[in-house]
Design a protein around this nucleic acid. Structure first.
Lengths: 157, 157
DNA sequence: TAATTTGTAACAACTTATATTACATTTATG
DNA sequence: CATAAATGTAATATAAGTTGTTACAAATTA
């Protein structure tokens, strides 16, 4: 080996995950919930019933509904005849908004945590990846911003 | 509940993951490997040395190098003074090509496996999500196609 | 022949996602 | 007022996926 600038630096086992990720069904779950709510304006839909449509556990639905409440999109009501209802017109919610609610990772994946600072590539690669990941994220965001929940819901007529 | 079209269908525990995903560092790892190779044309770089720059285990590097060999981009040589070398000019490899090598999931995540076919939303939502996911994927692909490995490598001068 | 490197399998450790159980709290209604 | 039905939430279990690690055969150079 003649390029020795990476010497005196060896990997260890302290490589941790960099960030949360998109390895989940949350986008699919949340847009499904919102679609059902949007199709039944003024009605209290129960988490059990919603869960039956998505085919997942009702507790997961209630967790997502909690996040949608915080976001100001949904009101829930406890007790008999309780449930959840959409508070915002579906043309006021874009798919970019939904993406932001569930997004917690980069489109192209995660970065390695500790590239070698003594290597010209390792030293700067995470900055370059940050820049690339951000560009891709903005591309998706701009496109999803053109699509509203109402557009999505209309497809099920 | 007055919308009963989802009755007689309850979730069970057979919900499996839909596909592999992007919950990993493979894009970052592979572009790091290719960048190092591109910066040392005609030299045999060992997996240990490459791993030292990325700060990961050399076995992971060798696994990725195997995939890059299959793709026709890299030649490796066993034995003393062995290593790996880039076979293709770096302006002939686009970031879209690299994305394809490591991609095995949708940008917006996974779909729920078994939405309720008795519900108008559940029945069609995976088709609609497929369509949306594909559109987002093409958007990213088109953008990454404009960027070559050479462009990326130049950033480290 | 010795040293070095790839190729690869097998397994371990760690992380995350989702499901499940349980129960307190709230609310409508007979 | 009692009952039924629903949310909110914590705690735990199950399952899957990612990365690290160990080990060693095979290849190659000097």
């Amino acid at each position: 080996m003649n390029n020795l600038y990476c010497n005196n630096f060896y990997y260890n086992k302290d490589v941790l995950t960099f960030a949360f990720d998109m390895n989940n069904t949350r986008f699919a779950t949340v847009i499904h919930i919102l679609t059902l709510l949007a199709r039944s304006p003024g009605q209290w839909l129960s988490s059990d019933w919603i869960a039956g449509s998505i085919h997942i556990n009702p507790v997961i639905v209630r967790k997502e509904l909690g996040i949608l409440q915080e976001r100001g999109w949904v009101t829930s009501r406890k007790g008999k005849e309780g449930g959840s209802m959409l508070d915002v017109p579906s043309d006021q919610i874009t798919l970019a908004d939904i993406y932001q609610v569930v997004k917690n990772a980069n489109i192209l994946g995660k970065k390695n945590l500790d590239p070698n600072p003594k290597c010209p590539v390792g030293k700067d690669i995470n900055d370059e990846l940050d820049s690339l990941f951000l560009e891709m994220d903005r591309l998706i965001g701009t496109s999803l911003q053109q699509k509203t929940l109402q557009d999505f819901v209309k497809q099920f007529d």
